[in-house]
Design a protein around this nucleic acid. Structure first.
Lengths: 239, 239
DNA sequence: GCATATTTGTCCGTATGTATA
DNA sequence: CTATACATACGGACAAATATG
């Protein structure tokens, strides 16, 4: 029941998605549409997602919508409570720490192994994208560029499966970012870090890059956990 | 159409699963049942999984079965071809290499970070399990123990999400293992390697453990790719 | 190349059980 | 405790795409 009005607004924009009849299933398109709403923060964590209401809003049947829910639940963006319904995932501080454990292993592991010149170039491109966003004062684009940077780091490993894992992790991170108030310094801090990490990679100093990345991830986790400001009971979900 | 008889046999044993009414959805139980059949090699890669036939065999409706298929497709155990149906995933040599890229990053990354005494103890337990299986000449149990060993390595990182990733990777690996003829030496080679890796971890020599694990994974990938014996066209799926 | 049969994709209606007001 | 709302699961239906003869 958290903000049903915004829910309607969020879903109404997707009704037109049915028009293009691509060889992709309706359920997949519904999942894509909902995933976008979720990662854009338009559906706040903890929100109930009633089948009938959302199915009507999207113009799809409950069966089709349920298939999309199964997919999103597998990506941990929504949680299915038996006989209760599906809810937008609420990430606890423990979940945030878990995500950073994944990131430390996956990102650092990918950086240690280096990558092809093209993959390294993609890292540099993400750094430049962040710098341009910073210069134009676009905080939102800056956050997106940072996600591109870390996606590019993982892509160094050259594994489609690892890329998919990172995509899911970043989607969950966006869920967290939208749930908390991000201070300006949080966004600014990673620009020089990215530059440093990228430089090490370009010069083949993977160990130094891994160390710098580890430092960055530890700082990032600490800052993010602080901004969550845990209530009385620790390990509790955050709104 | 590949071995419909074995498909019937495989599914008939699961019909009784409906008896226990746990707070777990039917679709989830169907997914569990199918996943077991898939990872046990009872449904060979490339097999078609017709909705009506399997739904009847499992005693569930097509809608419920389709929810299970969505979940299994997300785990890459089956592949959905639009308007064609779902098929048991066929892994190409490129897929195998991709899986090993994931394993190198995830397993080595987890080992580098060390783990709690309990997590290290689980690694040792998996080594012992493998030794017992070897002593009793149970090749099947040996393979299972090896999977437990690598699962325990990843568990060192203490991340539920990373454990889930590894579980999916191992499920795909089983798909490969069942599709190829495994030579006896393949199973025997990892026993001393596991012992060595475990010893390094117990003595806190994580760098040495990581190096030994890297060597093992490289050897394992090479041996597995060799046993696949790629036909004329490289990168093609294997039966 | 064409006509037919099969199967998927999607929807609807409905019965049942569970949770909540 | 009753009543209501909702999720769960089933079966049937139909169009569209695909496979088959």
């Amino acid at each position: 029941m958290a903000a049903p009005g915004s829910l309607d607004t969020a879903l109404s924009a997707l009704s037109g998605a049915r028009s293009r009849m691509l060889p992709v299933s309706t359920a997949a398109r519904v999942a894509d549409a909902l995933r976008e709403q979720l990662t854009e923060g338009l559906l706040p964590p903890g929100s109930r997602l009633p089948e009938e209401a959302i199915g009507d809003a999207l113009g799809v049947s409950r069966n089709t919508l349920r298939e999309a829910f199964v997919q999103l639940a597998g990506e941990r963006l929504v949680v299915r409570q038996p006989n209760r319904g599906v809810f937008v995932a609420e990430l606890s501080p423990d979940d945030v720490s878990d995500l950073y454990r994944v990131r430390r292993v996956v990102e650092i592991g990918a950086v240690r192994g280096g990558g092809s010149p093209a993959a390294v170039g993609a890292v540099r491109e993400a750094v430049d994208e962040g710098r341009r966003a910073h210069d134009s004062g676009d905080g939102r684009a800056l956050g997106t560029a940072n996600q591109h940077f870390h996606r590019a780091l993982v892509a160094l490993a050259g594994s489609n499966r690892l890329n998919a894992v990172m995509n899911q992790v970043l989607a969950e991170m966006r869920l967290v970012f939208h749930a908390v108030r991000i201070s300006g310094e949080f966004h600014d801090s990673f620009l020089p870090a990215n530059e440093q990490i990228c430089g090490h990679i370009e010069s083949g100093e993977f160990q130094a890059a891994a160390q710098a990345l580890d430092d960055y991830l530890n700082r990032s986790e600490r800052d993010l956990l602080r901004s969550i400001t845990p209530p009385a009971g620790n390990g509790r979900p955050l709104g």
